[in-house]
Computed example of a mutant assay.
Amino acid sequence: MTSTVQVSDVTKEYGRVSAVRGASFALHEGELIALIGHNGAGKTTLMKLMLGLIRPTSGSVEVLGDNPAAGEFAGRRQLGYLPENVSFDPALTARETQAFYARLKREPVPKALELLDAVGLGAASRRRVSTYSKGMRQRLGLAQALIGHPRVLLLDEPTTGLDPELRQTFYEIIEKLARRGATVLLSSHALTELEERAGRVIIMNRGIKVADGSIEELRRLARLPTRIRLKVKGLAANEMPAWAPPDADCRRINGHVVEIDAAPDRKIELLHRATAAGNSVEDVDVIPPTLDELYAHFLRQSEQAP
């Protein structure tokens, strides 16, 4: 894969505070990456470094083959950015705002205006921004970030204030961009909606990268148990089925449901036991560790490290 962003041993300090410490990773064409961490973990600082808004204290950042902090950063027009808190001139309409940013990026204004329809602002595009709700301003920010089909798209809490339908539309737009080869880096606390969409997850804690990989790779590394839920008929209120291994972590929930925490190397064995001929299992759900659980695991692990 072709690399579009290269972060190499980067540290950014503000006085005695280290916002980012020794971070290294590469982002590639066609990737949709979730950058997650608590407030103050270094996510926004990393985006500002990639944009060239700040310079690293040490280490280097390369975006589209160039130093983004250089005076003449040639790739700036190929970047899209949506900050967490968007702010536009309240006296302008959405159309005027979008046209302004299109001219700044030297992109065709008509094409930029079409993006207002894509984010659901077509009917309100002639209204002043001062009349917009937070969610509408967020949509306008997304339309601005998408001008010119950016090769690298940096999105900081982009779905804040969006209703469920617009969230779905938003993800459809950025997934389409990624399929066309764009690099999409998305920072969000909404881990549930990222779980099935991000091809890769980077976890930050106190400015340090503590995990980096696909959801499946992180599950293999974490080795957290998988929950197996089985609907079993014919059991008394607190009775466990005869096939349940005595050394397994089993419990009863909701009356007829047996839940087992299965270690990664015992999932298949436990499923075979439960579904063997003669057992009264009516239904099975297999629930792997969620992104929320993986996030909590790697944060705990990093806090315990010497």
Rank of each mutant, 00 (worst) to 15 (best):
S3I: 09
Q6T: 13
G22C: 05
I33K: 00
A34N: 02
H38D: 08
G42K: 04
K43N: 04
T45M: 10
L49I: 12
G52C: 12
I54S: 03
P56M: 11
T57M: 05
G59F: 07
E62R: 15
A70L: 09
E72R: 15
R77V: 05
L79F: 06
G80T: 05
D89R: 12
D89F: 15
P90K: 07
A94T: 05
A99G: 06
A112N: 06
A124C: 03
V129R: 00
Y132K: 10
M136Q: 07
M136L: 08
E157C: 08
T160N: 15
L166E: 11
E172W: 05
G181E: 01
S188P: 05
L191G: 02
L194M: 15
I202P: 00
I208H: 12
A211M: 10
I215M: 03
L218F: 04
L230C: 08
A237S: 11
A244M: 12
A244K: 11
P246N: 13
P246E: 08
D247W: 03
R251G: 08
N254T: 05
H256V: 11
V257E: 06
E259T: 13
A262Q: 02
L271Y: 08
H272E: 14
T275I: 14
A277Y: 12
V281T: 12
V286K: 07
P289C: 07
D292I: 11
L294P: 00
Y295L: 05
A296D: 08
H297E: 08
L299C: 05
Q304I: 10
A305R: 15
